[in-house]
Amino acid sequence: MDFLRPAGWEEALAAKAEHPTAVPIAGGTDVMVEINFDHRRPEYLLDLTRVAELAEWEATDRTVRLGAGVPYTRIIEELRTELPGLALAAHTVGSPQIRNRGTVGGNLGAASPAGDAHPALLAAGAEVEVASVRGTRRIPVEEFFTGVKRHVLEPDELIRAVHIRRADGPQQFSKVGTRNAMVIAVCAFAVALHPRTRTVRTGIGSAAPTPVRAREAEEFLGAALDEGGFWDSGAPLDPSVVRRFVELCAGACRPIDDVRGTAAYRRHAVGVMARRTLGWTWEAYREGEGRTAQCA
């Protein structure tokens, strides 16, 4: 095994081009577990913690460009306003120690269906910026995952950043685990209201081979909100609308039975979380969060 320590981004890309089998390591919260448990013996470890630009984020009017190496703790502390859904999700990751090390870039790279950041990214709307010595491309997060622990990266590519839409309305994230802390998701759900575009987006974790959006549910709810004038009136949601949204969210799952939970429970729990998180976000919207901007 060789340990590569690029000092900057260009050097990292060059190293990855030269050693396409190199396994990138940032917080180590996935890679080191695999090495410690002898599940993986990469030829090269590519340490990205020295690449300073990866640990930075910058916000523009509409988006936050989140460096792939920004640890969860900083997201919780620094980006609560811009990225409330992701900050909530970040707060459910592992333990404080893990949140101090783990990164969204690492979460994407591991591409676990249970990755906590994924549903929040899907709901907020995000693009993954990946790069190689050949150039840079941006991949919508919903197109990033191709299967269980698989993604679209080419062997010479590295994740540089995630461009996440700044919240223009309330966002929520919920995750079911069988413990009150330090737990991998049995399933997770994120919802984001986007008053500016009058859309609703969702993200579901750990209930399908990849993180998924409940697109039908989004479209149904979007249409119902539009047609009913809810965005303007801020009226309470019709229970039948909520019910249908919940059904469609649960229907978007393709869960399995495993040691963490049953498929039937996952589907059920996603429905419950969909109802609750929609309730919380809509309540917040009615109370003014995101509406002022909308009315102005």
Partner: peptide, 12 residues
């Protein structure tokens, strides 16, 4: 609350 930091219920 049940669920703790996982933010699954606000009392519901």
């Amino acid at each position: 609350l049940p669920g703790g930091l996982s933010n699954t219920t606000h009392g519901e």
